[in-house]
Simulated assay, not measured.
Amino acid sequence: MRAGDLNRRITIQRRGDAKGGWGGSPKPGADNWEEVGKAWASIKTLSGLGAIKADAEMSVVKASIRLRWRADLAAGMRVLHGGTVYDIKAVLPDTARREHVDLVCEVREG
């Protein structure tokens, strides 16, 4: 894997515990994310498609993110790059050579 291909600095996050004050129970409807780490990656947009859901127009963009090998990634996490949030739908590791991991992601706007 060439280092020049990894030209985007990303932040990887997983859903954390949204605790109430003083370590109480989770807040209802809280959306709390904690940082897993940062990495250099390449981001490629695969497709964009329009869909109508519940009488609201939405666009769904699919992307592939490739980064160096790491074993702590899972579907349900997310990647941040600039102001864009990528929801990780699948993790495809290069198990033969352990050089990289491809993340199948979606970006939703609408």
Results as ranks from 00 to 15, higher is better:
Ser59Pro: 00
Ala75Ile: 00
Arg68Gly: 10
Trp22Cys: 00
Gly76Cys: 11
Asp72Cys: 02
Trp69Glu: 04
Leu49Trp: 01
Ala39Pro: 00
Ala96Trp: 08
Arg68His: 08
Leu67Cys: 09
Leu103Thr: 10
Ser47Cys: 05
Ser25Glu: 10
Val91Gly: 13
Ala39Phe: 07
Glu109His: 01
Ile65Trp: 09
Met77Ala: 08
Val60Met: 07
Glu109Asn: 12
Ile65Lys: 03
Gly24Val: 02
His81Phe: 13
Lys19Met: 07
Val36Gln: 06
Val36Asn: 02
Asp87Ser: 09
Gly4Asp: 14
Arg66Asp: 13
Gly16Gln: 01
Tyr86Pro: 08
Arg9Val: 03
Ala90Met: 09
Thr11Ala: 11
Ala18Phe: 09
Pro28Met: 13
Arg14Trp: 00
Gly110Lys: 05
Trp22Tyr: 14
Gly4Trp: 14
Asp5Gly: 12
Gly37Glu: 06
Trp69Gly: 02
Arg108Gln: 12
Gly82Asn: 06
Ala54Thr: 02
Val101Tyr: 01
Asn7Cys: 03
Ala30His: 04
Thr84His: 08
Arg2Asn: 15
Ala71Pro: 00
Met58Lys: 10
Lys89Met: 13
Trp22Ile: 00
Leu92Asn: 14
Arg98Val: 04
Ile43Glu: 10
Met1Pro: 05
Lys62His: 12
Ala71Trp: 05
Gly76Tyr: 11
Asp102Cys: 03
Ser59Asn: 06
Gly4Arg: 14
Arg14Lys: 14
Ala18Val: 03
Ala75Arg: 15
Gly37Gln: 05
Trp22Gly: 00
Leu73Ala: 12
Leu92Met: 08
Val101Asn: 06
Gly21Ser: 05
Arg70Met: 12
Asn32Thr: 15
Lys62Asn: 14
Tyr86Trp: 08
Pro28Asn: 13
Thr11Phe: 04
Asn7Leu: 01
Ser64Gly: 06
Lys27Gly: 04
Ala41Phe: 11
Gly82Met: 05
Gly76Lys: 13
Lys44Thr: 13
Gly76Asn: 13
Val101Lys: 02
Val61Gly: 00
Asp102Lys: 06
Gly23Glu: 07
Ala96Arg: 15
Ala39Gln: 07
Arg108Asp: 11
Leu46Pro: 11
Arg98Met: 08
Arg9Gly: 01
Ala90His: 08
Glu57Asn: 11
Asn32Ile: 15
Gly24His: 11
Glu34Pro: 01
Glu35Val: 14
Arg2Met: 04
Ala56Val: 08
Ala74Asn: 08
Gly76Phe: 06
Arg15Glu: 12
Trp22Glu: 07
Ser47Met: 09
Thr95Ala: 03
Gly23Leu: 06
